[in-house]
Design a protein around this nucleic acid. Structure first.
Lengths: 340, 340
DNA sequence: CTCACAACTGCAAGCGCTTCCACACACTAC
DNA sequence: GTAGTGTGTGGAAGCGCTTGCAGTTGTGAG
């Protein structure tokens, strides 16, 4: 393996100068810089990042902690973050917590503390005070995506506001009988997202003077499968059927559409459906939704972190609200006069 | 930050002994081992992996290279691999190549060569000889998932065989007019997967004496969206309609189902559809498929690598065939007598 | 009782970089 | 002329571990 020494020798420079030349820090004459570059290229030299990290304390690596890679939102955030990091020459270490509590435990007590990452991005995770403190103790900037993270900088969308906006879209079309598919309590623990969206829904309904019927509020686990089952129940059991369904996520809206089709309901003629997310499948299904640009959130998180790292600033705990966009497609329409 | 020195001091041992005690290598008396452990725990000491890696040459980190995290197969492999790695105390560095050729280039020429990983898993990527050589030069075990990787160990499924099996399932039900949705040429470059599956399809058809109609072979990009568009065209334009569609992936089968519904075709009454994969949505849609256990493949890749690393063996280039399982659900049935 | 050998331990030499520091040299400003 | 400033360079001290080696002890065999 060729090391920086070999490069120095070949370039006729000292190791120190080569290091400065290649990293771009410090003063190096253009001549030396070029000589160093050329020698490095000829030898196919690539820095050993362990040595580099050990000496400099910078790892060029950020940790991304997600509850799952499988659900749409997380995979989109990963895509966005990974592209931004690659671009910046950073590695991405993925910590997929999964369902196993032991995994979560070990990620926080071991993995993240190994001084392996320059920064961490936590997606849709509510961290305990202990966990936050552990991270702060390692003295690394943290940004949270998808909800508040006490003492850390976060990127989030206005969950209550967009739920309101979505519901208003339905109300504006003339719907009054609107059902809502919310998240399970289990998901409410992290960031209270289902609850927040639900409250936006309820506020819009109340403002419009429409009753919120308890039997028209069902919960699922944010997956297509889960919502499919929940929606089937909703559509089958209700003595009266809603004319519109607002789901707290696109995946759940998709599950609803699939369930509706099972009942021979046409969308949007018999039932309007809308979600929140901007899921890729939305296009195929004509799903009206509120696009929250998850990729963009991932990329923004990276830019925020890298900015902090490069400027050596401590990341101020700040709440950045990411913009969202109503995308009207064909799954929502004016309710049919006779529909029930 | 507490270092191993502090632990040594507190435990009344030398740094060397503490290192051996905590890593479990070398001979350490039970007493010392316990003292070291206790001191480490009291101080909340966590190894600096950079220092450790630099000194030992082992990084406890494996690189996972994927073309995308978004498509079902890749995210499933990631889930499987990440769980297995976490379990083993390894970090997972994710290299998401994406669509950008420059990213691919930099991943291979820079990232993977930084001696940052102990091993690499390449998913559905056909590496050029250069790329393979680069990896071998770094002297790290490689395992490929999803196709042959010259000179490396690979895990794959019998693509031709399962396509044959799938087609036979359809033939066995009595279908003779079977369409096939294959992958684009772009996807054939990596591992020739679409071509291989297609040839399995054609073989089964030929063996059964059924004609393979060119107009019933359409290609898409392996996504739901892409197949949806392709299937619409297939179903709309053909003067005669097939009674069954075999898609080269579940995502494409799902796209087909969605398209069929647009045409008012009932599944399986008017059209049988089957795929390959074991996609989670398959359950909701009643999709008959061949489950290839992508998670399991990811986990197996990890076990293979760790085995090689721990035994210091060079990983023999070997081809492991992962088992698959026919899952019959409700999307396939005997063709209706009158259907066309 | 001596020797060989194993079990345990500590010293110290790295691993391959970064960066502080000192120094050499060119300038400009007085 | 001297002092002051800035730029470019190399020497060398680490970064925080692992591990080869040598030294110490305890054991059973000869």
């Amino acid at each position: 393996m060729t090391g920086i020494k070999d490069v120095a020798e070949r370039a006729g420079l000292s190791v120190a100068t080569v290091s400065r030349a290649l990293s771009g820090k410090g003063n190096v004459s253009p001549t030396s810089r070029e000589r160093a570059r050329a020698a490095a290229a000829e030898l196919g030299f690539v820095l050993s990042y362990h040595a580099s990290s050990l000496a400099s304390g910078r790892t060029h690596n950020v940790g991304l902690v997600v509850p799952s890679v499988h659900r749409w939102f997380f995979s989109a955030v990963i895509e966005g973050a990974s592209a931004a990091l690659l671009e910046a020459g950073y590695d991405l270490t993925l910590y997929n917590i999964g369902e196993n509590p032991a995994h979560r435990q070990s990620v926080f007590s071991d993995f993240l503390l190994r001084k392996r990452v320059d920064a961490v991005i936590a997606v849709s995770l509510e961290l305990s005070e202990d966990e936050i403190e552990q991270l702060h103790a390692v003295h690394r900037p943290i940004v949270g995506i998808g909800g508040p993270l006490p003492g850390a900088s976060t990127i989030r969308i206005d969950d209550s506001g967009i739920a309101l906006k979505a519901t208003n879209h339905l109300l504006g079309l003339g719907h009054t009988k609107i059902a809502h598919i919310t998240g399970n309590e289990a998901y409410d623990q992290d960031f209270h997202l289902p609850g927040t969206r639900r409250s936006g829904f309820e506020k819009a309904m109340n403002d419009a003077g429409c009753p919120v019927r308890p039997e028209w509020i069902v919960s699922a686990d944010f997956t297509i499968e889960g919502a499919y089952a929940a929606a089937r129940q909703l559509l089958a059991s209700a003595p009266e059927r809603p004319t519109a369904v607002f789901a707290a996520s696109d995946e759940m809206a998709i599950g609803t559409i699939l369930a509706a089709r099972d009942f021979g309901l046409r969308i949007p003629d018999d039932l309007s459906v809308m979600g929140i997310d901007g899921h890729d499948l939305g296009n195929v299904l004509g799903l009206t939704t509120i696009d929250q640009d998850a990729k963009g959130q991932g990329a923004l998180a990276v830019r925020t972190l890298l900015g902090a790292i490069n400027n050596g600033l401590v990341l101020e705990p700040a709440d950045t609200e990411h913009p969202t966009k109503l995308v009207v497609r064909t799954s929502t329409a004016v309710p049919r006069p006779g529909a029930s």
